[in-house]
């Protein structure tokens, strides 16, 4: 077996398991948890384009989730536009806002950039919470928007069961992973990593660091907004505290940091480890200790940063390589 064959085989195996899961997981609760796991893996992978590769730490990505969710929901509720088109519109609006946020903030370094993105995100949340009506658009302030479950079907991005959502988010996750993989091996990917690690050296080698970061931000905010529309259609109810909250921004960053920033598999591993913690905390301690999951995340983050500064992906990819070497080195010799 060659290395490529092994990779294809393991990828195929994972794909088969993921696609077959809903056949065995009949409980709506567990399916819901799985869907959220994929959704967070998707969000973190999108975040990773700028937060991982470009070496900055944006902590306001909930803004883009919110833009995606609100754009498609308002368009479908008030103008009867299918959420699929709303999804695209939200993505484009998000690119605009992302670039607007990126232009002044990418000149800042380290913690200042992180703080600036938090400030933007919180500012937008507070604005949405306090606006009932924006021109012709009904935003409904803190009460949020409810999507009446009336017209089910693929065209309306609305389904009575959870399975269709499962397959949509799996497709989205696979697409964003493939996209990230492609970017990481492209010129842009090299330029982003170089600019993130040693901006001065990168500039001297012909890299327009600020422009690369803006492109990454545009892609990241577009992809993140798509997840916002998915979120809205999945829960059929959005409000500022759910889709534009700081908790959401932080959870994405936590997953990335614990899983491994700047790696393809990191966000997935992070989501697999942290999402169940988050869900279990909400199910069992949601009323007594709300926010418990963030405390646990903090402890896990500290431990990971001490013992595995490059995230959980490091031991896992080491393990994968070991298994791959073991299996691919025993090529039967044919004389």
């Amino acid at each position: 077996m060659t290395r490529q064959q092994f990779q294809a085989l393991s990828l195929g195996l994972v794909a088969a398991v993921v696609l077959a899961l809903p056949l065995f997981v009949r409980s709506a609760t567990y399916l819901h948890i799985l869907i959220l796991l994929y959704l967070y893996a998707y969000l973190t992978t999108s975040w990773n384009l700028v937060g991982g590769f470009a070496g900055v730490l944006p902590l306001g990505h909930a803004t883009f989730v919110g833009i995606g969710a609100y754009t498609s929901t308002i368009l479908s509720l008030q103008y009867g536009v299918t959420p699929w088109i709303g999804m695209l519109a939200g993505g484009l609006l998000s690119v605009f806002v992302g670039v607007l946020i990126g232009l002044p903030t990418f000149k800042m370094r380290g913690a200042y950039f992180a703080l600036a993105t938090i400030a933007f995100a919180e500012g937008i949340r507070v604005m949405v919470e306090n606006i009932d009506q924006l021109g012709p658009l009904k935003i409904n302030g803190p009460r949020g928007l409810q999507i009446p479950p009336l017209n089910f079907g693929l065209a309306n991005f609305m389904f009575p069961g959870k399975e269709p959502y499962y397959y949509i988010i799996v497709t989205m996750l696979a697409a964003v992973l493939a996209f990230t993989y492609f970017i990481s091996r492209s010129k842009l990917g090299y330029y982003l990593s170089a600019g993130g690690e040693e901006p001065e050296a990168a500039m001297a080698l012909g890299v327009n660091v600020a422009r690369c970061k803006l492109i990454a931000m545009a892609m990241s905010s577009f992809l993140t907004a798509l997840a916002g529309t998915f979120w809205a259609q999945f829960t059929l109810y959005i409000h500022p505290k759910s889709v534009i909250s700081l908790d959401l921004s932080f959870e994405i960053a936590f997953i990335a940091l614990i899983g491994g920033r700047g790696s393809i598999g990191g966000p997935i591993l992070g989501a697999i480890v942290l999402r169940p913690v988050s869900d279990i905390c909400r199910i069992y301690f949601g009323d007594k200790l709300p926010g418990l999951h963030l405390i646990i995340f903090g402890v896990v983050l500290i431990l990971v940063m001490i013992f595995l500064p490059r995230g959980l992906q490091e031991p896992f990819s080491g393990l994968y390589n070991k298994v791959a070497d073991r299996l691919t080195s025993t090529v039967p010799r044919q004389e």
Partner: peptide, 22 residues
């Protein structure tokens, strides 16, 4: 640079490829 600035977490080949992408 007088004080060398390699992309430390990356391989030697990766470092040089950043240059050749120019």
């Amino acid at each position: 640079f007088q004080i060398v600035k390699p992309f430390s977490s990356k391989t030697v080949l990766y470092n040089v490829m950043v240059g050749s992408f120019a």
